[in-house]
Design a binder for these strands. Sequence first.
DNA 1: CTGGCGCGGATGGTATACCAAAATTCATTC
DNA 2: GAATGAATTTTGGTATACCATCCGCGCCAG
Lengths: 244, 244
Amino acid sequence: MRPAESGSRKRDRGARPVPSLQGLTDMPARDRAYHDLRYRILTGRLAPGTTLLETELAALLSLSRTPVREAVIKLEEEGLVEVRPRHGVTVKALSLQDFAHILNVFSALEVRAFELAAERGLPLAEATRLERMLDEMEAVTERDIARWSDLDDELHASVVAMCGNARLQDTISAFWGQQYRARLMILPLRPPPVDSNNEHRGILEALRLGDRALTRARHHAHRDRADAQQLALLHRSLGANGLA
Amino acid sequence: MRPAESGSRKRDRGARPVPSLQGLTDMPARDRAYHDLRYRILTGRLAPGTTLLETELAALLSLSRTPVREAVIKLEEEGLVEVRPRHGVTVKALSLQDFAHILNVFSALEVRAFELAAERGLPLAEATRLERMLDEMEAVTERDIARWSDLDDELHASVVAMCGNARLQDTISAFWGQQYRARLMILPLRPPPVDSNNEHRGILEALRLGDRALTRARHHAHRDRADAQQLALLHRSLGANGLA
DNA sequence: CTGGCGCGGATGGTATACCAAAATTCATTC
DNA sequence: GAATGAATTTTGGTATACCATCCGCGCCAG
């Protein structure tokens, strides 16, 4: 008999990896530490380059070293921090190359996720919901880039959530976290993303058709262009070697 | 020059993730635990479905709970085990669907890695080395499938190692670990992989040419076919739901 | 002035102790 | 006989204590 596992909130899988940090109550201290730290890093409250000793981290979170150590292991695995014994844990600074590497993995995975979503077929309700999001994105394109970006994240996350492959989702989520900071940084520099808007329409159309190959091609093209643009912006925003 | 990786053994990155377990001396207990456990799982000495309490694991490895806990966190992150509080850690059994999901991610990443390797260009020495490996693979195709499979792993790993994107390598390595057991299981069922041999030649040729698009196309096709075949074999080897 | 060597203190790795929560079992009752 | 509830025992989560080690600093020598 299967254990049913109904109440399994063991993983926040589908939940957007967006820094939200609402219910940090009643979860094990290790997870609190993990989420808290992750939140602080992604929002920049723990700036890249910051290094803290394990003891300091524990004090910062009012916990003992054990749970923060365990949290740090996860963060390290996720690529957000680096631990150097006797030197403390350092919030990783992203070089331009790091960012390129991350985008490379992220894109490959996201394209695959979109393909799978196309293959499974988009429920009609979901399709119209996405359509409405696109409407709003186009509406705010010229005047509220932050809102546009949030919607962009939600759009991509929504499709990824429909791919039906939990491992893929998890991996994407991890890499999403890594590129988030850099994205945030170049946000104000972005020109109105009319290209993205158009490409999004095309991708959504392919998704509705359930055409895997077409989805693949369009999303791939979209990511290639967008990634290159972001890379260029980041390059402008910091010398080729600087921190992100 | 390649960094040689002499001093910095912080990560066994490029090193084949193949279970080898040679120098488990003089490394922190946590890493010993991690490698030891991983080895036992991948080779099947810790069969899927096995569940052990933390205490039992600690006793098994003659360590205290702390380092094994930390090792287990990594293994869980890697998808090899599952921890259910008060129920111990369970070696994950792969359903057919799990295997499909893993292959999906793995393929997407490997294709990308091959692309990047193509773009960077293959050093001549490396190219001839790979060529020789292909020679041997063709030689043993009919009579030693195990050897063929080892070479296949090494071949793929070699190219991945040339992609120049450490994060990509690490992620691939993690997923490689997950599909390894299933691969091992269906090994004896495989027909002589003449298709793979031919496709490998084609891919290597594309790599030598440094033709990214061609490499992509060929490797993609290769993986699609090979993955489908493996999935079918696995399906034959266990009912659609069984353990792997 | 520079480079090596050694000593002391900071630091993290590991073991262990303690506690809270959950599971199992037993008893009691319907 | 089954089901429910309580008590016990098991287990994992967290805190802490301990120790080996590594780092940095200063001293001494070349």
